[in-house]
Deep mutational scan, measured.
Amino acid sequence: MASQGTKRSYEQMETDGERQNATEIRASVGKMIDGIGRFYIQMCTELKLSDYEGRLIQNSLTIERMVLSAFDERRNKYLEEHPSAGKDPKKTGGPIYKRVDRKWMRELVLYDKEEIRRIWRQANNGDDATAGLTHMMIWHSNLNDTTYQRTRALVRTGMDPRMCSLMQGSTLPRRSGAAGAAVKGVGTMVMELIRMIKRGINDRNFWRGENGRKTRSAYERMCNILKGKFQTAAQRAMMDQVRESRNPGNAEIEDLIFLARSALILRGSVAHKSCLPACVYGPAVASGYDFEKEGYSLVGIDPFKLLQNSQVYSLIRPNENPAHKSQLVWMACNSAAFEDLRVLSFIRGTKVSPRGKLSTRGVQIASNENMDAMESSTLELRSRYWAIRTRSGGNTNQQRASAGQISVQPAFSVQRNLPFDKPTIMAAFTGNTEGRTSDMRAEIIRMMEGAKPEEMSFQGRGVFELSDERAANPIVPSFDMSNEGSYFFGDNAEEYDN
């Protein structure tokens, strides 16, 4: 993207840094990872977990959730003011799984939030270390993106479920800051804005008074975040219109849905970061690795190297396929839920299948599930090659597409044709070009129609051997075009429920 120079890199967003050079960025990201790792080690000690239990991804998720809940100030305040039966607002906890007599047992633990905050700050040299908290939120978000298709949420806001490739980060909490905003897809931002506008339509006082002023500035800020994701002048001009509207209503909703559809071809720039579970960072720190000293990046080879040398386990339900569970977590670790499966298959070195073909449910185990038949197995999170994460949407291309997802959002900077089903997408653009945004709409449609099938995206960008740390010898991959490109292809993934 041309304006790259004016933006802070995501590592800076990730670490609240002012302008830093590459070495400083690597050190501050490393410091953040160190903090998460030290916190995780301490929690495993508190909970008396064995090494194996500490490497269980379900335990990692519970521990991450506990610290996120302990620092969720708004919710904590709300819980104190609106006490609900049987919930102690000062405590947080969740299921911890232990191996007892050759069987997995679930144990519900409860801790004072104050105590968890103390352990977290102690692991982070006394700081609140917001960057580390956001990092864990993005890992949870990436896992949700890989596990669930947001059909219901899309339909509720009037969008087409086939636009799911635009929904990265749709389950990120509001408090995820600049680093969170960077990884949100165009569809996620559109959905947040539509929800806001709908509230304004239904509630006369939404934009009024002292609160209304705050609401208005939040609305304009979200519009600017979305505008910054678009790469064409016409899309940005249309966002200006939406932002400046005196009284946002149905016309703005129409414009936003139009823009979301246009992003299936004229893709937005959305950041991709490899955020790993805390149970990967903990053992690495415990083994003596100093992330701050060595430096770390979320968008280069580092996460690949770390996963190459990590042992992570997962509980497996009786009829689940461990290899499929591994694929789910591998995609989440690489922030690749909406990437082209052919690119992923090449990088991973084994075939990556669409969601609907995987015999696996989510990673988390519900409290009512029976533990008797639970097994555990090693997650295979290694890769054959590594590639640089991208934040450009890439230019655009036609490809055989599917009944489910009709476009992709690249996660890796790797040369390819970008699949999208042009006739299906263009069919949504018939007729409606009147109104105050008509010239911009016409211009956007013209650009979409001009998108050429034979153009290559990320020209000359390749993948790298894991021994090639400096990215000196790019390998331009070859793809098996007979395979499906979309992950949520004609899909039956479970729906995400809060």
Rank of each mutant, 00 (worst) to 15 (best):
S3A: 13
G5Q: 00
M13Q: 03
M13L: 03
T15Q: 04
R19E: 03
Q20E: 01
T23R: 12
E24Q: 15
E24V: 13
E24M: 05
I25G: 15
S28T: 06
G30T: 12
G30K: 10
K31D: 00
M32C: 03
M32Y: 09
I33G: 14
D34N: 09
I36W: 07
G37V: 14
F39V: 09
F39C: 12
I41A: 09
Q42A: 10
M43H: 13
L47S: 09
S50I: 00
D51C: 08
Y52F: 07
Y52N: 13
E53S: 13
R55K: 15
R55D: 10
L56T: 14
L56Q: 04
L61C: 10
T62S: 15
R65L: 06
M66V: 09
V67I: 11
F71K: 13
D72Y: 06
N76R: 02
L79S: 06
E80R: 02
E81Q: 02
H82D: 00
P83E: 03
A85L: 09
D88I: 10
D88G: 07
D88A: 00
K90C: 04
K91M: 07
K91G: 03
T92E: 01
G93D: 08
G93K: 07
G93W: 12
G93N: 04
G94S: 05
P95C: 13
P95S: 13
Y97C: 12
Y97S: 05
V100H: 15
V100G: 10
R102P: 02
V109H: 06
D112H: 11
K113W: 11
W120C: 09
W120T: 02
R121E: 03
Q122D: 00
Q122N: 08
A123L: 10
N124H: 10
N124I: 08
N125G: 11
T130L: 12
A131V: 07
G132R: 03
G132F: 02
L133H: 01
T134L: 05
H135W: 03
H135G: 08
M136C: 14
I138L: 14
W139M: 11
W139H: 12
S141Y: 08
S141G: 12
N142C: 07
L143D: 01
T146D: 10
Y148I: 13
R150Y: 10
R152G: 07
A153C: 08
V155N: 06
T157V: 14
G158H: 12
D160L: 02
D160K: 02
P161V: 07
R162A: 10
R162L: 05
R162H: 06
M163Q: 08
M163G: 04
C164Q: 09
S165L: 05
G169L: 07
L172N: 06
P173K: 14
R174I: 04
R174C: 02
R175D: 09
R175T: 04
R175G: 02
G177M: 06
A179K: 13
A181F: 15
A181P: 00
A181H: 12
A182D: 03
A182G: 12
V183G: 05
T188I: 04
T188Q: 12
M189K: 05
V190N: 08
V190A: 15
M191R: 07
E192T: 08
M196W: 03
I197W: 12
R199L: 02
R199S: 07
I201D: 06
I201N: 04
I201Q: 05
N202I: 09
D203H: 03
R204C: 06
N205G: 13
W207F: 12
W207C: 06
N211G: 12
G212I: 11
R216S: 10
S217Y: 10
A218V: 13
Y219D: 11
E220T: 08
R221V: 04
C223G: 08
C223S: 10
I225A: 02
I225N: 13
K227E: 10
K227V: 10
G228Q: 06
F230M: 02
Q231I: 12
Q235C: 15
M238C: 08
Q241R: 06
V242R: 09
V242I: 11
R243Q: 06
E244C: 05
P248A: 15
P248I: 02
N250L: 06
A251K: 06
A251V: 15
E252H: 07
I253F: 12
D255T: 08
D255L: 05
D255H: 02
L256W: 03
F258Y: 09
L259G: 14
R261M: 12
A263R: 01
L266N: 01
L266Y: 08
S269R: 05
S269N: 07
A271K: 04
A271D: 02
K273N: 12
S274Y: 05
C275H: 05
L276D: 02
V280C: 13
V280K: 10
Y281Q: 12
Y281S: 02
Y281C: 03
G282W: 07
G282K: 09
G282H: 12
F291H: 13
F291N: 00
F291R: 04
E292W: 13
K293F: 02
K293Y: 13
E294G: 13
E294C: 12
V299N: 15
K305A: 07
L307Q: 15
Q311C: 01
Q311I: 03
Q311H: 07
V312H: 02
S314Q: 10
L315F: 12
E320F: 07
N321L: 06
P322M: 13
A323M: 11
K325A: 04
L328Q: 07
L328W: 06
L328Y: 06
V329H: 01
A332H: 09
N334T: 05
N334H: 15
N334W: 03
A337V: 14
A337Y: 09
F338H: 11
E339V: 11
E339T: 04
E339K: 14
R342H: 06
F346K: 06
R348W: 08
G349F: 13
G349K: 06
G349Y: 06
T350P: 02
K351N: 11
K351R: 13
S353G: 09
S353H: 03
S353T: 12
P354Q: 04
R355W: 12
G356S: 08
L358W: 09
T360V: 14
T360E: 02
T360M: 02
R361Q: 11
V363F: 12
V363Q: 05
Q364Y: 10
I365M: 12
A366C: 06
A366T: 11
A366E: 10
N368R: 08
N370A: 15
M371W: 03
D372K: 03
A373P: 03
A373S: 15
S377R: 15
L379E: 06
E380I: 04
E380F: 04
R382I: 03
R382Q: 04
R384A: 10
R389G: 00
R389K: 15
T390M: 04
R391P: 01
R391G: 09
R391W: 11
G393Q: 05
N395C: 11
T396W: 12
T396L: 13
S402E: 09
A403Q: 08
Q405F: 08
S407G: 12
Q409L: 00
Q409V: 13
Q409M: 07
P410I: 00
P410R: 01
F412W: 08
F412A: 05
S413M: 09
Q415D: 00
L418Y: 00
L418N: 10
P419Y: 00
F420Q: 06
D421N: 15
D421P: 00
K422H: 05
P423T: 13
T424P: 06
A427T: 15
A427S: 13
F429H: 02
F429D: 01
T430A: 15
G431P: 09
N432Q: 14
T433W: 01
E434G: 03
S438G: 15
S438F: 01
R441C: 04
E443H: 07
I444W: 13
I445M: 00
R446V: 13
M447A: 06
E454W: 06
E455I: 13
E455C: 13
S457G: 15
Q459F: 03
G460K: 13
R461K: 10
R461T: 12
G462D: 01
F464W: 00
E465G: 13
S467W: 03
D468L: 01
A471I: 03
A471P: 00
P474G: 00
P474K: 01
V476E: 14
F479W: 00
S482G: 00
E484L: 00
E484P: 15
F489R: 00
F489M: 13
F489E: 02
F489D: 11
G490S: 12
E494F: 01
Y496I: 11
N498L: 04
